[in-house]
Structures are given as structure tokens and as C-alpha cells.
Design a protein around this nucleic acid. Structure first.
Lengths: 174, 174
DNA sequence: TCCTTCGGTCAACGCCTGTAGAGTGAGAGC
DNA sequence: GCTCTCACTCTACAGGCGTTGACCGAAGGA
């Protein structure tokens, strides 16, 4: 499948280092077929990096469950191979590719933010919600992309045990 | 100055989207001069993205001062225009450029980590130190690169006030 | 059997890239 | 005045890129 090959390569190398030719090679087809099916490299990336993770649990979480829900939200996504590749592709490109940056900011980071903020409440609710996201983003990048040893080697259980209390204080009333 | 032009462009566009020709244009010189002075695009990047931020305060901080010191460490760096451009260049490329990724992991994230871990103490010290870094990384990326509204618009004071208590719990004894 | 359709391949275009090497012109030392 | 040096520019190469349009063979209806 062309999209799977694209996902894998975008995830591994980011947008600009991934070529249509490499995607086609990996999928065992001709580069022109990739163009024919997707129209452009840009459209191929959009199809490969589509972030589709259900927000239900995050939206349903009460204030005290929010940190756990946020951590599960990403750790679960990175367990499922297909979602992981799409997420990695998006993250790997978000600092250099304008479209990916906009998707991350508006559709991923901003997705449940308003709702989460209202769950948190208080004067700094929006900032707290955004910082919750920021910490989880930092964890994700450290663990899965940059692979900082201590974070990459830890078990999911350890990560949750250590980080959750900190995130809880972030959502506690002042 | 060629290096300043390179810093600015690497910071804005990342490694692969920045061309030698664009750097030369911005510096008002010939592309070949860039090659002559730096040898290769790779070497130019290394010169532009060199991360030189003093670790003294971070190393000298006691356990309770660690979160504040870590926050200051990056927020200060991003106030100084020159250090900011170098830091942005490095961060912007760290997810796609292997060399930048290695520098970030080993020389930036890992720089004071051992020392910080020993300051924290306890069984999870290394993980806690790494997660402290991860949260600060997430903050930095959200604020300066992806520009998530709530985080980018907040004052440094607000960021510290809201995030510091959370980071403090991260370094507290279990 | 013929004709059409269609998924797929092939070869090529024009552009942009990093890089190399010859050339130029001003300034210094004799 | 001559020559040497050195910072700099000009031109060009070779290769990789996204993208295009002509082409091909199998499938299927008339």
C-alpha cells in the first residue's frame, strides 16, 4: 500500500527528506502511480499524516482524571502501529513543514483544548490546558522521536507514575 | 555576516529547506564564498546551530530551585537574539536532521542530566531529570516554534508561575 | 473479434540543489 | 613597477527532485 509506505518514510525522515521515488520504491510501484493516485507530494503527506485519534475519553475526563487521560491519549496512539506512523510523520515534519505545523497547532494541540480548559476552570485555565499539552508533547518527542535514553527506555507505567503527579498539579485549582 | 544569515534561515526553515544560495543572498555574498568559508552545508549548520548556553546556574541549583533554574535556562536563551536563532535552528532541525537530533539528545538534553539527577536523588532520579527536560522542551517548542496561542501569548512570568509548581512535584522525593 | 477502459509503467522535462574550479581585482611587500 | 596573496565572484557540472504525458497490456462489454 502506497499510503503505508509514505507513512513509514515520512515518520522516519520527515517531509523534505522523503521523496516520491522512495515511497514508490518501498511500495513496489512506479513513482508516476503515486502522483496519479494522490495528485501531489503535499496531498500524499496529508493522507499519510492524518491524525485520527478519538477524543472521547479526553473529553469525558473530569479534572482529576485529565492528566491520566492525556497521557493515555498519546501513549495508546503510539502503541498502535498505524496510528503511530501517522503521528510520527506529523510530528517529524511539524517544525519544518508549514502545513504540518498548522495541523499540529490547530487540530492536535488545539483539538480538545477549549473543552479541557473549561474542565480545569479558574483564571489560567486556557494556559494550563495548553501547558498540559505542551508537557505531553515534550514527552512524546523525547521518547519516540529524539529518543532520549531515560525517557525512551522507561516503561509506560513508570512514565505515568512519575509524570502524572506533576501534571495533576498543573490542573489543580490555584 | 554569513553565520548570522545561516542562523536566521536555519531557524526559520530548518535544515533541508535552507539553501546555501539563500544564505549567501541574505548575507549579500556569493554562494561559493559560503562553501569556501565553511566547507559544506553540514559544517555551516554546525557553526550556526552551536548551542552555547552556560550551565552554571543549572548545575548550582539545589533540588527545590531546579525547576526555576531549568525554566530560566531556556527562557533566558530565547530572549537573547543570537542565542535564540541558534537554538531555534537546532530545534527546528532536530526532528529531521540526524546530526541535529544527536546534538539535541546528547549535548543539550543530556548536558546536565547526570548532575541534575544526582541533585534530585531517589530511585527514579534519571527519569525525573529527563522528564523535567522533556517538559521544558515541550514548552519551548509550543511557545517559540509551533506557536500554540495560549503558550506563545503568555508572559514569561505567567509561564513560570503556572508551570513551576508542576515541575516542582516532578523533582520532589516520592 | 473488435473496441474501450483503466491500472500501471516508461522516459523525459525543467528546475533546483550542493559543490568545484577557473578567473578577477584590490592591496601588500619588495 | 612587479609580483604575490587572498578574499571574492563567475560559470558550470552532475545529480536529484516533483511532475507530466505518451504508452502498454489485461479486462470486459458489444
Amino acid at each position: 500500500m502506497i499510503r503505508d509506505a509514505a507513512r513509514a518514510l515520512f515518520a522516519e525522515h520527515g517531509y523534505e527528506r522523503t521523496t516520491i521515488r522512495a515511497v514508490a520504491d518501498r511500495a513496489g510501484v512506479d513513482p508516476a502511480l503515486v502522483m496519479q493516485n494522490f495528485g501531489s507530494k503535499e496531498a500524499l503527506f496529508a493522507a499519510a499524516a492524518r491524525w485520527s485519534t478519538p477524543l472521547d475519553e479526553l473529553l469525558a475526563a473530569g479534572r482529576t482524571e485529565l492528566p491520566q487521560a492525556a497521557l493515555d491519549h498519546v501513549l495508546d496512539a503510539f502503541e498502535d502501529p498505524e496510528r503511530r506512523a501517522a503521528a510520527e510523520a506529523l510530528l517529524r515534519s511539524c517544525l519544518t513543514h508549514p502545513a504540518a505545523q498548522a495541523v499540529l497547532r490547530d487540530q492536535v494541540m488545539g483539538a480538545a483544548q477549549e473543552r479541557v480548559a473549561s474542565t480545569i476552570g479558574g483564571p489560567d485555565a486556557a494556559l494550563r490546558a495548553a501547558l498540559l499539552n505542551a508537557c505531553v508533547l515534550g514527552l512524546t518527542i523525547s521518547r519516540y522521536l529524539v529518543e532520549v535514553p531515560a525517557v525512551a527506555d522507561a516503561t509506560a507505567t513508570d512514565l505515568e507514575r512519575v509524570l502524572r503527579p506533576a501534571l495533576e498539579r498543573l490542573v489543580e485549582p490555584t
